[in-house]
Structure formats: C-alpha cells, structure tokens
Simulated scan of single mutants.
Amino acid sequence: MTLTRRQFTLAGLGAAGIAAAPALRAAGYPDRPIVFICPWSPGGTADTTMRALCQAASKDIGQSIVVENKAGASGMIGLRAMANAKPDGYTIGQIPISVTRFSQLGTVKLDPMTELTYIARVSGQTFGTAVLPTAPWKTLQELVADAKARPGKITFASAGVGGATHVGWEEFLMAAGIRMNHIPFKGGAEALQAVLGGHVDLLVDSSSWAPMVRDGKLRLLATWGEQRTQAFKDVPTLKDLGYNVVVDAPNGIGAPKGLDPAVAARLRAAFKVAAASPEFSNACAQIEAPLMYLDGPDYAKYVEATYRKETQLIDRLKLKELMAKG
C-alpha cells in the first residue's frame, strides 16, 4: 500500500482548502444531533474522556453529540462502523491509532490513508501495569523474576488482541526475556474488572487503574511513558527500569471519507475548542491522560508517520503470528 503525500493529504483530510464558498454550503450544519461512535465499552478511559470532549464540543457546535459505544476487535468494530457511515457530518467518532497496525495485519478492511477524514488528535494515554494489593509482587523486578521462574504461568488482561496495551506489553516481555499468558477483553473496563475480581493476575491498560491506585485497590508497578506521571511520581517507567520500551497511543477524532470541507472545518473548530475546555482537561487529569492536541492536517501527518513505524513493529514482534494465536 504505497501512497504519495499528495494522495494521502487529499484522501485523509478533504479540508485543506477551507474557503468562503464551501463554508456557505454548510451554513445550515448541524441542524440535528451528531452521533459519536466510541469503539470501546462504557466506563473505560477512552469512553470517559470522549464523553467529556463531546459534551464540550456540543456547546460550541450548537447541537448535542450523542455517544454510542460499539466495542470489540480492539476498537476496530466501532471504527469500521464510523468509516462506513454517510459522510454528512452526523456520524463521527474516535479513531484508535492501532488502525495503522490492524490495517496492515489484515484484521480490518480499512485503509487509514484513504478511508477517513481526520478532525483532531486530542489526548494521549498513560499506560501502566497494575496488580491487586494482595499480589505477591511489590515491584516490576519481582514480577519479572517470577515470570522467569514460571514461564507462561502469569496472566495479564488487556483491552484486546493486537491493541496498544497488548502489543506494548508484548514488546516489554520481549525486552525482558519472559513469557506471560494473555487474556484479552473487549475493552479496558472489562479487563479492569477481571483483575479486581482476582480472575487475572495483572492489568495492562491505559489509566483506568488511576482511581483504583489512588484508593488503594490496585498497586501500580510501572508506567510506560517517556517520563513519570505527576500523580504517581514514585512509580518508575519501563525506561527507568532499564527497558527501552515507550508506549503512547493518542486518541483522535475523525469522520468517514468524502466529508464536505466546510463541514470538516466546522467540526475541527468545535473540537479545537473542546480539547482546551475545562471539562475535557479535568476528565483527562483524572486518569493521567496528557493533552496532545493536533488539528486535522497535522493529525493526518502523524497517522502517516505512525503507519510507517507500525510496518517495522509488525515484523520485529512477529505480530501476524501473535494474532493467529489469539
């Protein structure tokens, strides 16, 4: 799948030339509620922040933005539903950046270079590894030592096969030279409940664990970013512990291809305001999600660069073999 920069820009954005004439064509937009497809289960970190974002955007755009959850296949079911919708600006949704990986693995028939309109990148994710307070591991080093002694016996829960949490943790396991047993779920909320219920040994997720760590219901062993989080400064990163692994999967907003440039411009303006709103900032702060806003054109460039990086990651981690195993 080789595209020129010009092909990607025209297909992915459709809004580069925002002028007065198309703006007039969309003067009546929106005149009814907008549906926002969240490709994750209710209650997870993405769902929580996306609802706050949509609430703020609805104030600017003058219509309600109704969140619909369509979870499954590591976010690809909801994304596919959004991409297949009529490109009229009344169905939009979150774009999991893992589409740059899944499209190459063949698990979703969607080309992120040509089948989406990019509106905004809004926030990043703080990933981490958490266990129950009663777990035998007080540190990540203890977990690694136990995993070496008992290869494949320790279980970990993620938001789905091939997603950012699964692939990020597999990258760490390779770096540490250990094996664990993956237990995938439809989303972070289900994975969290499985660990809280004692059914799975450890949680690897974006920061659904943050409130539980604050309340003493989970113990955070490590985070996966370049730097330690402000709220959990005593918790080391994987890099702090000597592993050259950094995982960051920003959340973005998009629409189907073929969106009227003026409609895209109106959505971009509304979500730019929403991304800077107190509602969204507070929701992100609660789960240690860093604000990482990019407007549509720059977001499209980011997706293109990520696509190239994923090509290398797929080969290095033998992801096709991992996906085949489930």
Results as ranks from 00 to 15, higher is better:
234 D>T: 15
208 S>C: 15
244 N>H: 12
228 R>G: 03
219 R>I: 07
211 P>G: 00
224 W>A: 12
211 P>V: 10
229 T>P: 04
205 D>F: 00
245 V>A: 08
229 T>K: 05
224 W>I: 03
246 V>M: 05
226 E>N: 14
220 L>P: 02
238 L>Q: 08
239 K>S: 08
210 A>R: 04
237 T>V: 09
216 G>E: 01
206 S>T: 14
241 L>A: 01
238 L>P: 06
226 E>T: 12
224 W>C: 08
244 N>W: 03
219 R>T: 11
228 R>H: 06
246 V>W: 02
212 M>P: 06
209 W>N: 02
220 L>Y: 05
222 A>Y: 04
204 V>G: 02
245 V>L: 04
213 V>S: 07
203 L>E: 00
221 L>M: 05
241 L>D: 08
227 Q>D: 11
245 V>M: 05
223 T>Y: 05
211 P>T: 12
211 P>F: 08
214 R>W: 05
245 V>W: 10
227 Q>R: 13
211 P>R: 07
234 D>E: 15
219 R>S: 09
215 D>V: 01
240 D>N: 07
214 R>M: 00
207 S>K: 03
233 K>G: 15
225 G>R: 13
241 L>W: 03
230 Q>T: 12
237 T>F: 02
231 A>Y: 00
213 V>T: 11
232 F>S: 09
238 L>R: 09
209 W>Q: 08
241 L>F: 00
233 K>Y: 12
231 A>E: 13
222 A>F: 02
240 D>P: 09
222 A>R: 06
241 L>S: 10
244 N>Y: 03
212 M>W: 07
240 D>R: 09
207 S>C: 14
218 L>R: 04
206 S>I: 13
217 K>P: 02
205 D>N: 14
224 W>F: 11
214 R>H: 09
225 G>W: 01
235 V>S: 10
205 D>L: 02
207 S>Y: 11
224 W>Q: 08
241 L>C: 01
237 T>D: 01
208 S>I: 15
219 R>H: 12
246 V>I: 15
224 W>Y: 13
211 P>N: 11
222 A>G: 05
239 K>W: 06
207 S>E: 13
230 Q>Y: 11
209 W>D: 04
207 S>D: 12
222 A>V: 14
